[in-house]
Simulated scan of single mutants.
Amino acid sequence: MYGATSVIIFFILTHIQYQIEGKKLVVFTLFKKWTIPISEIKEIKKNYSRHIAPACHFDRLEIFYGEDEKIYISPKDVEGLVRGLLEVNPQIRVDFL
């Protein structure tokens, strides 16, 4: 029983993807897809919270966008993703790097 549950959790956590597609950040999970216009991203912070989110571990980025929306992500290549977002929208505030 525990083995099957562990395999399912592992499968879900390892099938999270973050991609920059043109002028959008796309976050894919097994069950949901978020599409965030990069022009609406205002700020990116490091965050170590334990909120349930499409992030594999607790070393996360918190992305603030839209009016009052945010999403937690944990890309493998943090610097690469942030630099890609900044290329599209250099107005994004980043509190690290």
Score class of each variant (00 low, 15 high):
residue 83 R to G: 03
residue 80 G to V: 03
residue 36 I to P: 02
residue 87 E to N: 12
residue 81 L to D: 00
residue 25 L to S: 04
residue 65 Y to A: 01
residue 57 H to E: 11
residue 10 F to Q: 15
residue 6 S to A: 14
residue 64 F to L: 11
residue 87 E to H: 07
residue 7 V to A: 14
residue 28 F to E: 06
residue 49 S to R: 11
residue 6 S to N: 14
residue 47 N to H: 12
residue 78 V to Y: 00
residue 11 F to N: 11
residue 44 I to M: 06
residue 96 F to K: 04
residue 28 F to C: 01
residue 70 K to M: 13
residue 11 F to V: 10
residue 92 I to W: 00
residue 23 K to T: 13
residue 84 G to H: 04
residue 26 V to R: 08
residue 35 T to L: 03
residue 39 S to P: 00
residue 46 K to R: 15
residue 29 T to W: 03
residue 75 P to N: 00
residue 7 V to Q: 12
residue 69 E to P: 04
residue 37 P to V: 03
residue 75 P to I: 02
residue 51 H to R: 15
residue 69 E to Q: 15
residue 87 E to I: 00
residue 81 L to H: 01
residue 13 L to Q: 14
residue 59 D to S: 12
residue 96 F to S: 08
residue 35 T to H: 07
residue 6 S to F: 10
residue 26 V to F: 07
residue 30 L to G: 01
residue 97 L to I: 12
residue 57 H to D: 14
residue 79 E to F: 06
residue 73 I to H: 03
residue 68 D to G: 11
residue 59 D to C: 05
residue 26 V to E: 03
residue 7 V to H: 10
residue 1 M to K: 13
residue 26 V to N: 04
residue 64 F to K: 08
residue 41 I to Q: 02
residue 63 I to K: 03
residue 20 I to M: 00
residue 83 R to C: 05
residue 58 F to A: 10
residue 4 A to E: 15
residue 65 Y to P: 02
residue 15 H to L: 07
residue 34 W to N: 07
residue 78 V to T: 12
residue 2 Y to V: 11
residue 21 E to H: 09
residue 88 V to L: 02
residue 79 E to S: 13
residue 87 E to V: 07
residue 85 L to Y: 01
residue 31 F to E: 08
residue 31 F to C: 05
residue 39 S to W: 02
residue 15 H to M: 08
residue 93 R to G: 08
residue 4 A to L: 15
residue 94 V to R: 04
residue 9 I to D: 10
residue 78 V to L: 06
residue 25 L to K: 05
residue 48 Y to F: 13
residue 64 F to E: 07
residue 42 K to S: 09
residue 91 Q to A: 13
residue 86 L to F: 05
residue 92 I to T: 00
residue 81 L to K: 04
residue 57 H to R: 11
residue 24 K to H: 13
residue 46 K to L: 15
residue 43 E to G: 05
residue 25 L to F: 07
residue 62 E to F: 04
residue 61 L to F: 03
residue 95 D to E: 14
residue 51 H to E: 14
residue 60 R to F: 04
residue 44 I to L: 07
residue 68 D to E: 15
residue 27 V to H: 04
residue 56 C to E: 06
residue 55 A to V: 07
residue 15 H to Y: 10
residue 20 I to E: 01
residue 83 R to K: 15
residue 61 L to V: 00
